[in-house]
Design a binder for these strands. Structure first.
Lengths: 254, 254
DNA sequence: GATGACTAGTTGTCTAGACAAATAGAGCGC
DNA sequence: GCGCTCTATTTGTCTAGACAACTAGTCATC
């Protein structure tokens, strides 16, 4: 790639870092880049200088710059792409966690196009904890559905759903025709269901999750664990969702 | 430290890694350690082999082991402490996000001892976004309170609260006597308030947040942004909370 | 025009070595 | 016993260099 003045932001004022003052160099670099991003020196979506450029600018080794970039990526300020470069990050989708949580409705309400595909459907025996939450006996069969949900074609959530097999035995077949879980449940005689409780935590993704969500291993995923019940109060399923924190924000209304 | 067979877990079966097969060595190491933790080879709270030991065991450079350990720390499986070693991680606190969210109540309900201290109280003019959310005019004074809340003496949440100064001018003085925000609000004539909406996201902490929460820079923080209103529907405050993901799990009931 | 080989640019991984910073224990002086 | 220094151990930071993997464009060939 030739030196195209429009393809890259201008270099920020370099200057020396405080060495031996107890503040790691990579932190100082991260701080300066953060300031430059906040001040608009680097516009959202814009390209940052390459690692080599920054290393030269601050007179440090490239690895030291890399440590700073990893930090900023994890904090959600930049996006790093192998072979292409680093870019200033953009904004996120609101994901409402009310009692009525339907993926496609939520996405459409934000003028985006919902999508998704079923990754895997399998059956297993419920171990103690799962059986208790589903309100069935230990060892009873459970259908496990893994689904990747998209917004405007970009992966947003990775969901793992656990249904009691006795009641929802037709699910696998139905999902082959239409990847919408809500539609399949309707066909199984559950036209409506509600979210009863949701637990939320955050962690860095496993390599598989990072791959499927097309997200950096350095950005956290929001992990939700929730239980849906039908109007009669019977448990429909236990769902585990992993949201790309760079693209989704959970919203709780009460 | 001498070689004490009880102070450290036994070394797992080492064995060679697959080199040049397209899977990074650090990933393979992380995977093996993860398996060893899951299988109980390393008990929760127990000590892992040192970086040097693992490097020798897998015949790689110490930096390669470090990369693997960073991964596991971010995923919440291990806890790394400078000068001491690395340990298998333990369990977390449930933090309920219902309409009635009171820190000390939530903590006490789990048989833990709530605590906290006010880090800083300041006043500033509301910029557009903040003014809108608080239902006041832009430029009106706002009191900003930063509080670190503890559970059993360990930092759990870092909260930043924004109150309209006209109504809550006495807050700074009251908080000097008692660090409980609920108590101070009662004294200001707000005996009760409710959480109206909460937005949740996750990211890696800033260095200051990591420091205050006594959490690794590598573990995410859960970030909540919420609005509290009094029974009349008037906005009391806008609160931003940063939860140590290693120690807290948010719970939404609906 | 489409295809494929090649090349330059950029981030990812691994090795090697050095020293800093934090921890914990041992030993000493009082 | 108490506090202090000293030292060994362990993780943290930085440098240096090499090559792999991926991206995007160029150019020759068909």
């Amino acid at each position: 790639m030739t030196d195209d003045p429009n393809g890259r932001e201008t270099l920020p004022a370099g200057g020396l870092l405080a060495r031996g003052q107890g503040v790691a160099l990579w932190r100082q670099i991260a701080q300066r880049l953060e300031r430059d991003i906040a001040s608009g020196t680097h516009a959202p979506g814009g390209r940052l200088p390459t690692e080599a450029d920054l290393a030269g600018l601050y007179n440090v080794n490239r690895h030291t710059v890399r440590r700073a970039m990893e930090e900023l990526e994890g904090r959600g300020l930049v996006r790093i792409e192998q072979g292409r470069g680093s870019f200033v990050a953009e904004d996120v989708v609101d994901y409402s966690l009310g009692p009525r949580t339907r993926f496609s409705e939520i996405i459409r309400r934000q003028n985006r196009e919902p999508g998704g595909r079923i990754l895997r459907v399998s059956e297993m025996a419920a171990e103690t904890g799962l059986a208790e939450q589903l309100g069935i006996r230990r060892g009873r069969p459970v259908i496990v559905v893994e689904r990747l949900s998209l917004s405007d074609g970009r992966p947003l959530v990775l969901g793992t759903h656990h249904f009691p097999a006795t009641r929802f035995g037709r699910l696998p077949e139905l999902l082959r025709q239409d990847p919408s879980i809500t539609t399949a449940l309707t066909a199984c005689g559950v036209p409506d269901y509600r979210r009863r409780i949701t637990r939320i935590t955050a962690r860095l993704p496993t390599p598989e999750e990072a791959e499927l969500l097309q997200q950096s291993r350095n950005r956290p995923v929001l992990v939700t664990e929730g239980i849906n019940t039908d109007p009669a109060g019977e448990v429909v399923d236990l769902t585990i969702g992993r949201y790309a924190a760079g693209r989704a924000q959970l919203v709780v209304e009460s």
